[in-house]
Design a protein around this nucleic acid. Structure first.
Length: 206
DNA sequence: TGAAGGATTTGT
DNA sequence: CAAATCCTTCAC
C-alpha cells in the first residue's frame, strides 16, 4: 500500500500547538516539502518521528534555555535545526505552547519518486536516502540556515496534511503505526516516544 | 579558556 | 567497534 498522493493542504502553526507526544504520531503520513533556492521541490512522506518534551532528560531544553535551543521555547510551527557530531544536521518541528520547550524530531522520509517509473532497484535505493535524521537533512539540503524557519506553504520548507486516503488507512488499521523507544540516546532511553509507519521500508535502521 | 561529549552515519 | 568533525555546554 502506498500513501503517497496528491498535494494536501498545508499544516497551519496552530496544529503544532499540542504536546509533542501527540504531534509526533500525527505527523506520520504527512508530507514534508522542501523548496530549494533553485526552485526545485523535494517531497517526502514522514514515516518516522520522535518526541522531545519538558522534563525529558534527552531533550536539549531539559536543563535550561540556551542560544541553541531557544526556538524550542518559542511558539509552535517553527523549525529547530541543530548540528550533531559536527557532521550531520537534525530537523525538528517545534510543538506545544509558547514557553513550553518541546519538539518533534523527523527521523525518516519516504521520498516521492520523481521519475522512478517502476524501477524496483531505484525505488529500493530511494527508500534509504532519507532513512535517518542526518540523511534526511542531507537529502533535503537542510542546515542551520533553516533554523527557526516558520513552516508556511511556498517557503523553503512546509508540511502538508495526510491525504484522505492515508488518513483513512491509518485510522482503520490498528497496527499501522508502531510506538517504541527512541534511538541513540544516553538519557530518557526508556520513554516510548518514537513512532513509525509499521510497513514502511524507509524507516531508519537499528 | 579548555575539555568533554553528542537526538549520526559509515566503513573496518 | 571506531572514526569523522565541530559546536554547545559546563567546569575551572
Amino acid at each position: 500500500m502506498q500513501f503517497i498522493s496528491e498535494p494536501a493542504p498545508a499544516i497551519a502553526p496552530d496544529w503544532f500547538a499540542r504536546p509533542s507526544t501527540q504531534v509526533a504520531p500525527d505527523l506520520l503520513g504527512c508530507t514534508l516539502v522542501r523548496q530549494l533556492p533553485s526552485g526545485a521541490v523535494i517531497r517526502g512522506l514522514i514515516v518516522e518521528t520522535e518526541a522531545y518534551a519538558p522534563g525529558d532528560p534527552a531533550c536539549h531544553a531539559y536543563r535550561r534555555q540556551t542560544q541553541r535551543n531557544a526556538v524550542m521555547f518559542g511558539p509552535a510551527g517553527l523549525t529547530y535545526v541543530y548540528l550533531i557530531y559536527g557532521i550531520y544536521h537534525c530537523l525538528n518541528l517545534v510543538t506545544d505552547g509558547d514557553g513550553v520547550p518541546s519538539a518533534v524530531l523527523l527521523r525518516a522520509l519516504q521520498l516521492e519518486a520523481v521519475s522512478a517509473g517502476g524501477d524496483r532497484a531505484a525505488t529500493q535505493k530511494l527508500d534509504r536516502v532519507a532513512a535517518g535524521p542526518g540523511k534526511l537533512c542531507r537529502a533535503l539540503q537542510i542546515d542551520q540556515t533553516l533554523n527557526a524557519h516558520a513552516l508556511r506553504p511556498n517557503t523553503a520548507l512546509w508540511v502538508e496534511h495526510r491525504s484522505p486516503d492515508c488518513d483513512r488507512a491509518l485510522a482503520q488499521m490498528p497496527d499501522a503505526i508502531t510506538q517504541t523507544t527512541r534511538i541513540g540516546l544516553t538519557q530518557g532511553v526508556e520513554l516510548p516516544w518514537r513512532w513509525y509507519l509499521t510497513q514502511s521500508k524507509a524507516v531508519s535502521k537499528r
